[in-house]
Design a protein around this nucleic acid. Sequence first.
RNA 1: GUGGGUAUAGCUCAGUUGGUUAGAGCGCCAGAUUGUGGCUCUGGAGGCCAUCGGUUCGACUCCGAUUACCCACCCCA
Length: 416
Amino acid sequence: MLTKAPKGTKDIIPSEVYKWQYVEKVFKDVCTSFGFEEVRTPVFEHTELFERGAGDTSDVVEKQMYTFNDKGGRSITLRPEGTSSAVRAFLENNLYAGTLPVKMFYEMSCFRYERPQAGRMRQFHQFGIEMFGAGGASADAEIISLAITFLSKLGLKGLDLNINSIGCPECRNEYNKKLKEYFSQYSDKLCPTCLSRLERNPLRILDCKSPECQEIGKDAPVILDHLCDDCKESFEKTKTMLSAMGIKYEIDTGIVRGLDYYNGIVFEIIAGDIGAKSTVCGGGRYDGLVSQLGGQPTPGIGFGLGIERLLLAMELAGIEIPKPKGIDIFIGTIGEEAKLKAQKLAYELRQKGIKADIDHLDRSVKAQMKYADKIGAEYTMIIGDTEIENNKANLKNMLDGTVKEIEIDKIGEEFI
RNA sequence: GUGGGUAUAGCUCAGUUGGUUAGAGCGCCAGAUUGUGGCUCUGGAGGCCAUCGGUUCGACUCCGAUUACCCACCCCA
């Protein structure tokens, strides 16, 4: 118990963390080149924010939230997603009064109470971006192209970008009615889950894996045929933009985002077969969310990108993440006097920004050399009484094994 | 919440129809090389065989329960 992390959580240990640092750096660089700035919001929020934001009929809010009362009796929830917090920060800090559009990115832990499986954790990590105040197709295309740029920079090939439009509240209502009408005719043939979806969310029946439901779904009305003129036009414009940038996409009328705030364009990016959960990035437009949370009507669009799934996809694709360089020099020692000297030398080198390490376990020279090799030391120097007396020691290049004699006190000059 | 699978050394896994001292590879430590890594060879440490109960003369092995992990469904990143 004490030595076991809670279900659905995982340590990122020192020997693995370089992978995270690598994708984090690439993501930040890409976002910056697109003119986005980082935002950091609290890990927990008032529960109401997610109920109003993600929507209290969404599965996430209904049964997956880590909610508790704090000692002051407030209902607090560990964030299950990032967009609600971003909108709250946008409103609370009056960012809408500044220069529009507001473009921000983030990396955050999110929490959902679910049964863990491949690519799904209870604590998971997301990259995300949000853009507020721009409702046009160029904003859509910018968001999508940022995701594609990022994933491509990491070396992922064969990305599948699937897009759809779920329309504005008006055309979606119309469409839902038509869907209900259509599927009601087959209510005796639908599977039990889809029968319950008929009332709750008929759109999801289109996603069902059961052969019967799929067969019935083939002839169901398609959302894209039932968009209002405005929605239709903006979807067309976005597609034109994507094509102009040479970004390939597929229309997938089955994409329905799980959070209630989406409207208009929605998209998913699938990067390789990483198990059942192969969607690495999902997002869309949420033009109603800002006003839903008490602000002036402001268009918004963004995406979330799962870091665990990203790393899975990269591993599966055989992408090698560059390991960071080891230390510059290991100073090995024989005897107490040498230890004293090495400690002082390492301290001076480290202050100059040179990565230096010494022995702390009083090991044999051979063992110290092995240690130096393991930590990836580029150079080693062993000092004992003779070396200290002459102020001369051998500096060994660990890559080619060559040795050169240097003055101990001038060791720093070797690393300029 | 529903269903399936797995549980033996730090890691990846063997372990015969139930039979007495539970193995390998990798990793770790040490020696060969009395003050110099990688390669090789030799040795060493490290196991309540997940837990609890049952069957049996005898259980790592068979049965049951519990727990944990993995995978899939719902849903999602």
